[in-house]
Write a protein that binds this DNA or RNA. Structure first.
Lengths: 224, 224
DNA sequence: ATGGTATTCAAGTACTTGCTTGAACACTAT
DNA sequence: ATAGTGTTCAAGCAAGTACTTGAATACCAT
């Protein structure tokens, strides 16, 4: 079966193309960022602390695997994730790593610990409370990510603006902060700070992606 | 945020460990085989046309990523997939590759073409027809894989034994052959041969894994 | 113990990858 | 045109990976 062997090899090599795109920590980080919102090469380079050239090269690899796509906008080249299935890919890797590799749990615990916020939140109920104004849902990611998609009734309050806007936050309602997802620390920091100041704040582990994967609705800025 | 940076890097490196295990065509092939049934190193080496030492090394990589596990059985070391989530990983890569990479479709088409069997089969209905004996479902994989799990009411008829057992096959019922899944060619070959001889044969694209992922039941040999 | 078989380990080589640097290219604004 | 900015390309180096070969280990049978 020489014919068949060539077929088989060719096929697995195609599958491996996808695998190769996912085998670098930096590339996974890029995908994760792009899942929140599209970005230019320069922005991605800044956020991942890589050189622009290097970032560009990683993006080429992802592009060849059809995980991301790009369009030129004037002087910038904007990259985005090419399909929702790319998110599923990352999710399944993260899920697998979390269940299979004890190290992942150890790492997240070491960082998130001290912040014992992890009371399980009923998502549907949370949405209802947000709707009635019973709870204040804060999106603490950078504004651009909020605009690209956010939880229903959530308000944007990027972590970096938190200090300036403390006065406008209610002391009498529960504040629920979320960010990019379970591995992101933005919401952890926000909740830590808010509690320090006496607010009733909890962290929602979900990001928009997790929320969406649960089949729950997400809002977008109409202007875009 | 140096502390945070270290956390982030460590985390993505763990995720990448999983990715690294999936970035070689040979390793994907190994996983695919192991998803059908557990095997010794030697068997895997034979089936993938690799040297034993090389196979062993690939298996170490998969083991470190906790995708496979092994136990010693007397003189042999038997490897198996460590959890069902590993199957989900491979599935999501294959799914992604199939949708995103035109090459995959081109490759499969080139091989499967001529065999225009792909009439969509209603799985639940097929199971009903198999139960009543209305259709004969053949598992054309090697016997060991059949024993590790097969579709309900399916009979084992490894492709290599097909010629010898032609006489026992019915001309008056539909024969539905399946193998490891959509990318496997065993069933294609079986159907080709059967049709040549005037049987009413079709191929079911599913393998056991696909079947199971649909939430449908699977049978195991009680003896095992 | 001895020899046989299955697996893993260790060392070596060819090849690939990740990152850097500096140049080239594409587009904008003047 | 010209200069300025953002992105990609090309060359080069260090590090890592895939595979081979031959030796070492683990187990079984006698």
């Amino acid at each position: 079966m020489p014919q068949y062997d060539r077929y088989k090899t060719a096929l697995y090599e195609q599958f491996a193309r996808v695998g190769k795109a996912l085998c670098s920590a930096k590339r996974l980080e890029l995908i994760d960022l792009l899942l929140q919102a599209e970005r230019s090469v320069e922005e991605l380079a800044n956020e991942t602390s890589m050189s622009v050239a290097n970032t560009s090269q990683h993006l080429q690899v992802l592009k060849q695997a059809r995980i991301v796509e790009s369009t030129r906008h004037g002087n910038h080249v904007v990259y985005r994730v090419s399909s929702e299935q790319a998110g599923a890919l990352l999710t399944s890797i993260q899920l697998f790593a979390e269940h299979g590799l004890a190290e992942v749990e150890a790492i997240t615990r070491r960082f998130h610990d001290g912040c014992d916020e992890m009371e399980p939140v009923d998502r549907v109920q949370l949405m209802a409370r947000a709707k009635t104004g019973d709870a204040l849902v804060l999106d603490v990611r950078p504004k651009a990510e909020y605009e690209a998609g956010h939880l229903p009734y959530a308000e944007s309050l990027p972590l970096e603006d938190l200090e300036q806007r403390l006065a406008s936050l209610p002391k009498d309602k529960q504040i629920v902060a979320y960010c990019r997802g379970p591995y992101c620390v933005l919401a952890v920091e926000a909740v830590d700070r808010l509690r320090e100041l006496g607010f009733n704040a909890v962290r929602l582990e979900d990001g928009v992606r997790e929320w969406q994967e649960q089949g729950l609705p997400v809002e977008y800025e109409e202007s875009a």
